[in-house]
Design a protein around this nucleic acid. Structure first.
Length: 687
DNA sequence: GTAGGGTTAG
């Protein structure tokens, strides 16, 4: 008799202890159960299968079922199929199905569900198609499941046929089948059909309404989705977390009013708020560039409601920590994740890597990366990006090769990231070869994102003309980002002619974007063409365009403080400006000359009243210096995140301040990191 | 059992 390897966890399954003991006491030479097959009770086998067994346990139980000649037993077969499907082992579920001779509606439903819940939609629908041949009538368990297969695969043609068959057996307007139909039509974009089904249902619940809301939301029809929400109120169906979640696809980069509507919905849930509703609200803030609100909400969920954040909460809020450089909160979340054993979890770990990377903690990012049990393309890409934005192009490129060695296939985003990393580090030839690798070897069609990266790579490296011809040779219509990259390069290398061409395109594509007018004016200023500078300023004025005010975030003692350009709103403002004056005097002793050219980076700064406006990063640096002590390791650094590119004057300033104060200053601008240490910047002044 | 919440780039 072959020895069966058993690795149960008897602690969790008291009844299993008996089984376990039996096997341990039996000597390998003796049979482990009586030949009549009664030693392991039939009910016990069923019970083990019902308690979410792991793969090893499942195989053990399955072997026993076979050994005890129970492979044809329908009841055990159904349990086996469910258990295999729960472990995503659809193939084994199918084998069990094939061995059960009986064909009844339960067995067929379980087979369909095993397929559909694991993404095998076509196979699930195929099994549905065989029901008729077995003379089995689909029931109210069958339809929701096959309809889900249609919604997930966007197959409205089959969906309509299934609708017909549901009508024939008289189930089309029952609750669960009706919900499935609403959802299927909604997801496929057939909103009037979805509405019709809903109206004809004999009974509706919150899921019915949510499904319709989801349908509109998934098709970007926010107003219609909201209208359905209002209708729900009217017919006295309370919104729940599902309603909020259903709205989510429609509230990305949306209006303040829409965000407020969802927020009201959230607040109105009062004590009925669930984990999902908190998570969705955080998600809404994140999808609307409101990271500060997202962080605040996360901090409140536990204390206000006693709701414990789960992996989804964490994954949603970590990008907000990265965005705002909220390193202390990020670290706390990391500790929480460890304490609550929320890892290993790919999404959480990937988000941690990115959070640390965006806070400038390359070592910690790498640490999370190294400790991962398994990594996907996102993990590698996040790490490559971390090196890229820190100007460590060589490390980024090395990581790309390692990713290839690990057998993963880089995707389109991995290439964007890697080419961008080359661009930051001035690795012109490497960047070119990755573009070639992507198109020739991986057969990935370059998208606008890649083209913008290439233009940036070439332009930054001084190949402005080549960048321009690259754009002209493109088979797709260049967008704002592509021309924007070219314009940026023109400013860097003082190419007025091509700069004007790029600006011309940009003014057509994005006439309201003040940043491009500012860039062009910089180019003219650099060339000493002051008349044009004035002209641009006049155009901006006549169009009512204001330059985006610069803003910097800095975390001090666990709080995020935001400073705007020329900010005087902070209670410590007077001290900050006094301290800045003291520093500037010391800087001048070291040879600092306020950079007149940088001052011109700001069209508005030529106005007398704003001429003295101090850039936000200077205020943030001084504020942090005043309120923090020099610490150890990564606590020593002052971390600043700003919403625009750093200007030349602040760049020189930060270098000198790092020298005078012996403090490390890390500034993340919209493009990359600048790490200032002892008077030198990590970018090597190439940025 | 049906709806519904998450990570990487520019």
């Amino acid at each position: 008799m072959k020895r069966i390897n058993v690795s149960f966890h008897p602690r969790h399954f008291p009844e299993l202890r008996k089984l376990h003991t039996r096997i341990i006491v039996s000597s390998p030479t003796k049979p482990e159960f009586e030949p009549d097959g009664t030693s392991v009770h039939y009910n016990l086998l069923g019970h083990v299968l019902d308690t979410n067994p792991d793969h090893k346990t499942l195989i053990t139980v399955h072997s026993r079922i076979i050994l005890q000649n129970l492979r044809c037993d329908s009841a055990l077969g159904v349990k086996l199929m469910k258990a295999y499907a729960a472990l995503k082992d659809v193939e084994s579920a199918r084998k069990v199905f094939d061995e059960i001779p009986e064909r009844n509606v339960v067995i067929l439903n379980v087979m369909i569900r095993s397929f559909v819940n694991n993404g095998f939609y076509r196979e699930g629908i195929q099994v549905f198609g065989t029901m008729c041949g077995f003379d089995v009538r689909p029931d109210h368990y069958t339809f929701p499941c096959v309809l889900k297969a249609c919604s997930c695969s966007g197959n409205v043609v089959i969906g309509k046929k299934i609708h017909g068959s549901a009508t024939r057996v008289g189930l089309a307007s029952t609750l669960f089948t009706g919900n499935g139909l609403v959802s299927m039509y909604g997801k496929c974009g057939f909103l009037s059909e979805a509405r019709l089904v809903l109206d004809e249902m004999s009974r509706r619940d919150v899921v019915s309404w949510n499904s319709l809301v989801a349908g509109y939301a998934q098709n970007q029809r926010f107003d219609d989705a909201l209208e359905v929400c209002r209708e729900m109120e009217f017919v006295k169906v309370s919104h729940d977390a599902g309603t909020m979640a259903s709205l989510l696809p429609a509230v990305t980069n949306t209006t303040r009013d829409n965000v407020m509507y969802v927020k009201d919905m959230f607040l109105n849930m009062g004590k009925k708020k669930s984990l999902v509703s908190w998570n969705v609200m955080i998600g809404v803030y994140m999808k609307n560039a409101m990271p500060v609100e997202a962080v605040e909400l996360y901090s409140r969920m536990m204390e206000a409601d006693g709701v414990e954040p789960d992996a989804v909460s964490i994954t949603s809020v970590l990008p907000a920590c990265g965005d705002t450089s909220a390193l202390s909160l990020g670290k706390k979340i990391h500790e929480y994740v460890e304490r609550k054993k929320l890892i290993p979890n790919l999404l959480v770990e990937n988000a941690l890597i990115d959070m640390y990377a965006k806070c400038g903690c390359l070592d910690r990012a790498r640490d999370v990366f190294e400790k991962m049990k398994s990594r996907d393309v996102v993990s590698w890409t996040a790490m490559i990006s971390a090196y890229g934005v820190s100007g460590k192009g060589r490390d980024a490129v090395a990581l790309f090769s390692k990713m290839q060695d690990s057998g993963l296939v880089p995707d389109s985003i991995a290439f964007v990231t890697t080419i961008a990393a080359c661009s930051h580090a001035g690795l012109l030839e490497e960047g070119r070869s990755y573009f070639k690798l992507m198109t020739d070897h991986y057969k990935i069609t370059p998208r606008l994102e890649h083209l913008a990266c290439m233009v940036d790579l070439l332009g930054r490296a001084g190949k402005v003309k080549e960048a321009y011809s690259f754009i002209q040779e493109m088979s797709v219509e260049p967008n704002e980002r592509v021309w924007g990259a070219l314009l940026g390069a023109c400013r860097m290398h003082a190419d007025t002619d091509i700069g004007l061409l790029a600006a011309d395109k940009l003014f057509q594509l994005a006439p309201e974007q003040s940043g491009y007018y500012v860039l062009l004016s910089n180019i003219y200023a650099k060339a000493g063409r002051w008349e044009e500078v004035t002209k641009i300023r006049d155009i901006m004025k006549s169009k009512g365009l204001k330059k985006n005010p610069g803003a910097s975030n800095v975390e001090v003692n666990g709080e995020i403080y935001t400073f705007l350009v020329g900010d005087r709103s902070h209670p410590q403002s007077d001290e900050i400006y006094r301290e800045l004056d003291v520093l500037v005097t010391k800087m001048k002793e070291l040879g600092y000359v306020p950079d007149s050219e940088s001052a011109l980076h700001d069209v508005e700064e030529e106005d007398k009243e704003t001429h003295l406006a101090v850039h936000s990063e200077k205020l943030a640096i001084v504020f942090a210096l005043m309120n923090t002590e020099e610490g150890e390791e990564d606590n020593n650094a002052i971390r600043i995140t700003k919403n625009l590119r750093i200007c030349g004057d602040c760049h020189v300033g930060a270098k000198l301040i790092s020298q005078i104060t012996s403090r490390e200053i890390i500034i993340r601008d919209t493009n990359r990191f600048h790490v200032f240490r002892f008077g030198v910047c990590s970018c090597g002044d190439y940025w």
